[in-house]
């Protein structure tokens, strides 16, 4: 197979891969922002005492974690038009990734908040802080630090998951590989190239994780 591996075709298709890469990057970025919003809202609901907010949040998180992303994507892609929402594929894709990753992010943030020792919360209660002050001044600044590494891990998962959007014909990176594979019957060239690009994105995010942990490490206490 390698003797007829065509680098020329890859070079020829490079602009298409470039466009796919750019699309993957910005739609992943948008989805991640969306997922953060979804995650924060779900986590806030999940931390309430009463079950009125907690039960639906838990049910949602379980449902997302228990079902394949592909099923969720098709559920939105085919389901939304039937209830009257006809949205572009790209929007459906970003929505699906946000709603999916949001469930995982909710749990990451919750773990971060629960990692703050109870004694510190008691100390802030005892000093007369309100719930909001406690969160803002004591809990969240510390929870933020411990959530950065797992959040970047989730970002890496999200980038890889975005490949599924090729199935609803969003012109992202994997779609570019598919086009090369089917137009020229060169699946090896097509998918090897996109693998290389995904690796690039992976190292980019990993580098970010290293830099941020170094920055966070020097920006505060060690405990």
């Amino acid at each position: 197979m390698l003797e007829n591996f065509s680098f020329r075709t890859i070079v020829e298709y490079l602009p298409l891969f470039g466009q796919g890469l750019v699309t993957t990057v910005w739609l992943s970025a948008l989805s991640f922002v969306g997922a953060l919003v979804v995650g924060i809202v779900l986590c806030a609901m999940n931390l309430q005492r009463g079950w009125l907010f907690r039960a639906p949040a838990k049910a949602y998180i379980d449902a997302v974690r228990a079902t394949p992303l592909l099923a969720q994507l098709y559920f939105l892609y085919f389901g939304l038009p039937r209830v009257g929402f006809v949205l572009p594929e790209l929007v459906v894709g970003i929505l699906a990734l946000s709603l999916n990753s949001g469930a995982y992010i909710a749990e990451i943030i919750r773990a971060g908040i629960l990692s703050i020792p109870r004694g510190q919360v008691e100390a802030s209660v005892a000093s007369g802080m309100t719930y909001a002050q406690r969160m803002r001044l004591v809990v969240l600044p510390q929870a933020f630090k411990v959530t950065i590494p797992p959040l970047l891990g989730q970002a890496i998962v999200l980038v890889k998951d975005s490949a599924l959007l090729s199935l609803i014909s969003v012109a992202e990176l994997t779609r570019a590989g598919q086009l090369l594979a089917s137009d020229r019957f060169m699946p090896a060239e097509g998918f090897l190239t996109i693998a290389a690009f995904y690796l690039l994105l992976y190292y980019g995010l990993k580098g970010l994780a290293v830099v941020s942990s170094r920055w966070l490490g020097s920006a505060g206490a060690r405990a």
Binding site: P117, G119, A123, A126, S127, G128, M129, K145
Partner: peptide
Amino acid sequence: TQLRTEIGFVFQSFNLYPHKTALENVTLA
């Protein structure tokens, strides 16, 4: 919340805020 501002509580395990300096621990509330 108001009543608690009049009552200091010292814990067995100190419970200082680890992300704040000594001075910040004292001035936060």
